[in-house]
Design a binder for these strands. Structure first.
Lengths: 203, 203
DNA sequence: TATTCCATGTAATTCGTTACATGATTCT
DNA sequence: AGAATCATGTAACGAATTACATGGAATA
């Protein structure tokens, strides 16, 4: 949380997305990297102002643009600044998964609640997987000749693999709760080991 | 980011971990849920004070404790408050993965840098996987008869599956960069589709 | 004796969301 | 005419990290 990444994200989007307004930057973030990054308007607009002041981006003439739209373009200095930041190793993510947290304390509330959370998670993960498949198709269609192709593909692939894993996990977790209610801890341990074995055989 | 979760985490740890000091709460968090949750001292200590004031926990006599250690115990009211929070659906995590972000803009810096990040990620994921296997062994050894067994097992399993997926992904991502440098975008697309096919066949 | 680990706490700062405020344009 | 979407911005608040400050106990 130390160094503010928002500015660099904006810079990066302008570097690969061309001339964009704050609103469009936000849309880009949601569509292209939304499954692993989010930004709110409350930060994008002040950041655009700051970046313009630092000469890392410059506002284009509003002549062509419709409505009040203000578009920005990255400057060579901005590109250099972006490159510097991108070259530094990424900081470890500070993960905070509230679903896992509430499940971890599941014994306090019981299997009913936990099962409900997991079923909802299954739905969310399925939707996410579908969205990622669609995103992949768009990349393959639109970025065939782009320098960015490899990187766009590898990031969606990351999401696909992770969400597939989560989906599989959520289903086995529901089964584990069922097992516990029917056969107690012994059944849980039996099922747990069995699932692990079939997993490693499948690979 | 709306409702403060720190207090509930502390409450939860005290509910399943017994009487603990702030320092010990932090240790518990690191060991038991560290792979999906983190808290800093700067928040735990003020939170303990606040929870004690609200009568959700109470400080034990320091007589038995060594050094300046101050231990706390959850009260029935605290347990009720915890249960209420746990029953509410978990909020969607606001994900921010700096590795994926920097990889996504990889074309700006080139394959050298991206490969380095991925190799480092492979190391980190391998270490994480090892740690999770050890954590699982401890749970099976120590929580055999605990109400919490199912929930402790399913959360580590989540970590194991996700990190296994990330590990596999990081390796194929490195291969994808290699493919691009040798055979350009056509090679990338070929490899990408091939990897996806062998994946779905394996399952 | 020096270093590491245990242990508690406060203050400053940054970060980020949410809510608020405003208005144009397009679609139904 | 009304709703939805496009579009920009500010202000207030809350949350979380980091740095700072302090000191006892154990170990090498």
């Amino acid at each position: 949380m130390r160094e503010k990444s928002t500015g660099y994200v904006v810079l990066g989007i302008l570097a690969i997305g061309g001339d964009l307004s704050g609103y469009e930057v936000r849309q880009w973030i949601g569509q292209a990297i939304g499954f692993f990054w989010s930004e709110s308007f409350g930060q994008i607009y002040p950041e655009l102002k700051r970046l313009a002041q630092a000469k890392f981006i410059r506002a284009l003439e509003t002549g062509e643009a419709a409505r009040g739209t203000k578009r920005y373009r990255i400057t060579p200095a901005g590109r250099e600044e972006l490159r510097r930041w991108l070259s530094r190793p990424p900081r470890a993510e500070h993960i905070r998964n509230e679903l896992l947290l509430k499940l971890f304390f599941g014994a306090v509330t019981g299997g009913e609640i936990a099962r409900g959370f997991l079923q909802e998670a299954v739905r969310a993960y399925e939707a996410r997987s579908k969205a990622l498949a669609a995103a992949e198709a768009l990349i393959i269609r639109d970025d065939r000749t782009s320098d960015n192709l490899v990187y766009a593909l590898m990031t969606v692939r990351s999401g696909q693999l992770v969400y597939a894993a989560r989906l599989e996990w959520a289903r086995t977790a529901i089964a584990l709760i069922d097992a516990q209610e029917v056969g107690g801890n012994e059944a849980v341990l039996r099922d747990f080991v069995k699932a692990a074995r079939s997993k490693s055989k499948g690979n």
